[in-house]
Amino acid sequence: MDIDIRHIAKLSRLRISDDELAGYEKEMSDIIAMVEAMPDIEDELTVDPDNAMTLRSDETVSEKIPRDEILKNAPKVVAGCVVVPKTVE
């Protein structure tokens, strides 16, 4: 089957150059061909009540990481905020 690599790349926020395109198309098609051999199963996905989780109690923790520390990996910080290119929706 044909996969619209450009569309998928856009959804994934990846940029695929023209010379990479054919390679990805081939590899993705091969993989999709493999997975399409899966049999059809007449069933629905269900939620398993036996696989329940414990919920967290609504209590704050005292331990806090200072702002400078927690933002130290950010590529660009101004006035305690992370900076990104101008974004208005």
Binding site: L71, N73, A74, P75, V82, V84, P85, K86
Partner: peptide, 17 residues
Amino acid sequence: GVKYGYRAKDCDGLIDM
């Protein structure tokens, strides 16, 4: 590229980044 890790240089807008 927003909060941590690599960010491409000289971006032209958000999508480009």
